[in-house]
Design a protein around this nucleic acid. Structure first.
Length: 468
DNA sequence: GTAGGGTTAG
C-alpha cells in the first residue's frame, strides 16, 4: 500500500506509521499515537476516500480539510504533525484551522493554539498585517472578530504588547469588533509598560469603535494618566465615566488619590484629601488601600504627624493594618531621621499586630541607619536579615558599602564587596563609585584610579557619574 | 478573562 497509513498493532491506543517513505517527504517509520481507535479509523477513512498518495504533512492537512474531517481530528493531526515533523504550516492553513475551530466554537483550543504561536519567535516575526490579511480571506465576520480578539490577548499575555497594539489597530481597519475585556488587557499592558500615549489612543479608539468601556477600562486609563502626572485629565475621565453611566468605585478613587500623592505639585495632599471627601460622600468608604496610600503620601510629604493621624483613624475604623502600612510609616520616620521611633514602631508592629518585618521593612531601616551614619546598627540588621534567610540585593549592598565608605571604613566596604561576589551578585556602577570615592577620601588616589579602570573595563562608568 | 497600596544606592 504505497503512500498509505496503516495500523501497526491493535492494542492500546492505536498507533500507526507512515509507510513507503522513500518517495515521500515524511520521515521513516514515525509512530503516531492516536488517542483512540475510533479516531484512527475516522482518519483512515477520510484518507482512503480522498487520496492515493501522501506527499507531505501539509498535503495531509489539506486533504483532511477538503474531506470535511471533523475539527477535533484535524486539530489532533495538526498538533501531532507539528510536534513530530516540526512542520511549519502556512499562514493560510493555520487560518483555515482557526476558522474551523471557531465554527465549532472550540474557543479554548483557539486560545491555546494562539498562545503557542505567539511564544514562537518565528511566528512573531510575521507582520501582524499579513496575519490579518490571511484571516480576512475566510470565515464570517463574527468568527474573525473572535479570533482577532484572542490573537490580540495572546500577544499581550505573552509579553508582546506592541504586537497586541498592532492587532488592535488592524482589527479596526478590518472592521472587526473586539471585546472590552480584551481591550482592557491591552490597555493594562500599555499602562504597565508606561506607554501612556498608546493607552490613550486605545481608549479614544474604543470610544470611536463603540466598544462599551466598563469600570475596569476607566480605572486602567485613570491609572495610566496618573502615572505620567496627567492628574487633571485623570479627574476628567472620572467625570466622563459618570456621564456614561459608569460609577467610580474604590479603585477609581484610590488610583486618583495615589496619583495626587505621588505626582501632584504643591498642595497635593490637600487635593488628595479633597478627593477622599468626594469618595466618602459618594458612599464609598475608605478602604485598606486608601489609608495606605494616604499614609505613604503624607510620609513622602515629610508630614509624619499627619500620617500618624491617618494611621490612628485607620485603626479606629477597624480597617486592616498591614505590613505595607507599617513599612510606609517606618519609612517616613526613617526619612526624618527619627530612627528610635521607627524601631519602636517596628517592635510595636511585631508585638501588637503579629506582623513579621519583610525584606522591604528591613531595607527601609537599614537605609535609615546608613543615612544617619549609624553604620554598625545598619550592619546588625543586615546580618539579621541574612540570618533569617533573606538575601540582600545589589541595592542593599550598595547602601551598606556607601555608608562604610562615607564613614571612612573602606576596608569594611571592600569586605562587603567581596561577599557580594561570593554570593554571585555583580557590583554595578554605584558600587564602584562609592568605593572609588571612599578610596579618594582616604587619600588613596592610586587605588581609586585602579578601581576606576576596573569599572571602566566593565563598561560601568558614565562620564557624568564620575565622583571625583 | 481584565483594574488600585510599602523599599531603589552614588
Amino acid at each position: 500500500m504505497p503512500g498509505k497509513f496503516f495500523p501497526r498493532n491493535k492494542l492500546g491506543p492505536m498507533p500507526f506509521c507512515f509507510a513507503d517513505t522513500a518517495t515521500q517527504n515524511v520521515p521513516h517509520n514515525i509512530v503516531v499515537e492516536l488517542i483512540s481507535k475510533q479516531q484512527w479509523l475516522r482518519l483512515r477513512t477520510h484518507l482512503e476516500t480522498t487520496t492515493t498518495t501522501i506527499t507531505s504533512p501539509t498535503t495531509v492537512l489539506q486533504q483532511l480539510f477538503d474531506s470535511g474531517a471533523d475539527t477535533e481530528l484535524v486539530l489532533r493531526y495538526f498538533d501531532w504533525s507539528r510536534r513530530e515533523f516540526k512542520v511549519k504550516y502556512t499562514l493560510e492553513l493555520i487560518c483555515r484551522l482557526l476558522h474551523s475551530l471557531a465554527a465549532a466554537k472550540m474557543y479554548l483550543k483557539i486560545r491555546n493554539l494562539l498562545n503557542g504561536f505567539v511564544k514562537d519567535e518565528s511566528f512573531c516575526s510575521v507582520s501582524v498585517s499579513s496575519i490579518f490579511r490571511a484571516f480576512s480571506s475566510c470565515g464570517g465576520d463574527h468568527d474573525r472578530s473572535r479570533i482577532a480578539d484572542m490573537l490580540m490577548v495572546a500577544y499581550v499575555k505573552n509579553m508582546r504588547p506592541h504586537l497586541g497594539f498592532e492587532a488592535f489597530k488592524r482589527a479596526g481597519e478590518y472592521g472587526l469588533k473586539l471585546s472590552v475585556v480584551s481591550c482592557n488587557h491591552l490597555l493594562n499592558a500599555l499602562v504597565k509598560g508606561s506607554e501612556i500615549v498608546g493607552a490613550e489612543y486605545v481608549y479614544k479608539e474604543m470610544r470611536n469603535r463603540k466598544i462599551e468601556l466598563d469600570l475596569v477600562s476607566f480605572n486602567i486609563v485613570i491609572h495610566g494618566l496618573c502615572k505620567v502626572g496627567k492628574l487633571k485629565e485623570a479627574s476628567d475621565v472620572i467625570e466622563d465615566m459618570k456621564s456614561l453611566g459608569v460609577s467610580p468605585d474604590a479603585i477609581t478613587y484610590n488610583t486618583l488619590i495615589d496619583g495626587y500623592c505621588k505626582r501632584g505639585k504643591i498642595g497635593r495632599m490637600y487635593r488628595a484629601d479633597a478627593i477622599l471627601k468626594d469618595m466618602v460622600e459618594s458612599g464609598i468608604p475608605a478602604d485598606e488601600f486608601t489609608f495606605n496610600i494616604l499614609i505613604d503620601g503624607f510620609c513622602k510629604d515629610r508630614n509624619v504627624l499627619a500620617a500618624m493621624k491617618v494611621f490612628d483613624e485607620m485603626k479606629n475604623q477597624g480597617v486592616k493594618v498591614s505590613l505595607i502600612t507599617y513599612s510606609s510609616l517606618i519609612n517616613g520616620l526613617c526619612a526624618c531621621g527619627k530612627l528610635d521611633e521607627a524601631i519602636a514602631l517596628r517592635n510595636q508592629m511585631i508585638t501588637c499586630s503579629g506582623l513579621k518585618p519583610d525584606f522591604i521593612t528591613h531595607s527601609v531601616i537599614i537605609k535609615g541607619f546608613c543615612k544617619q551614619k549609624m553604620v554598625d546598627r545598619a550592619r546588625e540588621l543586615f546580618d539579621d536579615l541574612v540570618k533569617q534567610g533573606m538575601v540582600p540585593n545589589v541595592v542593599m549592598y550598595n547602601t551598606m558599602i556607601d555608608a562604610y565608605c562615607k564613614s571612612r571604613r573602606t576596608e569594611d566596604a571592600f569586605a562587603l564587596h567581596d561577599s557580594m561576589l561570593e554570593r554571585g551578585m555583580l557590583p554595578n556602577a554605584a558600587t564602584y563609585n562609592s568605593l572609588i570615592a571612599g578610596l579618594c577620601s582616604e587619600g588613596d588616589t592610586e587605588g581609586a584610579k585602579r578601581l576606576e579602570n576596573v569599572s571602566k573595563n566593565k563598561g560601568l562608568i558614565k562620564a557624568d557619574l564620575v565622583t571625583y
